[in-house]
Design a binder for these strands. Structure first.
Length: 114
DNA sequence: CATCTGACGACCG
DNA sequence: GCGGTCGCCAGAT
């Protein structure tokens, strides 16, 4: 599986902003959901300039285990993101990615919900 | 091929 | 809020 689309989006996250696995997966419509986003990040090649630390769990919580958790927190704080009790304030730092090309739905997009 | 293992998240108690 | 279960599914063993 090629996670390129994921890395590409992650690289677009502005400095000082963050994104959650769930939002990431939803934005790219990854099959398997958030877990897929997590797998992609787990396979993130280091040294590619990919700001993996800007991806957090639901509610802005740092889910990765040590020793990376400390590093992630450190990197976030160095960008001006306040981390409290292993979590950041999404209201203040969540970044909303542009919608991934949603092929013409001009006027058919109806609610799927009940 | 059979199992196990998660950078997840929704749900439940 | 915390811990356990379940669905998800690509990789590793």
């Amino acid at each position: 599986m090629s996670w390129d689309p994921v890395y590409k989006l992650v690289q677009r996250i502005p400095r000082g902003r963050v994104l959650t696995y769930g939002e990431l997966a939803k934005a790219l419509r990854l099959p398997g959901g958030a877990r897929s986003a997590g797998r992609a990040m787990a396979a993130t090649p280091s040294g590619k300039g990919i700001p993996w630390h800007r991806v957090l769990g639901e509610r802005g919580k740092i889910l990765i285990r040590e020793p990376y958790a400390s590093l992630q927190r450190k990197l976030l704080e160095s960008e001006g993101v306040t981390v409290v009790e292993s979590r950041v304030d999404l209201k203040r730092h969540l970044w909303k990615p542009a919608i991934k090309s949603k092929p013409k739905q001009t006027a058919s997009r109806k609610r799927i919900r009940k």
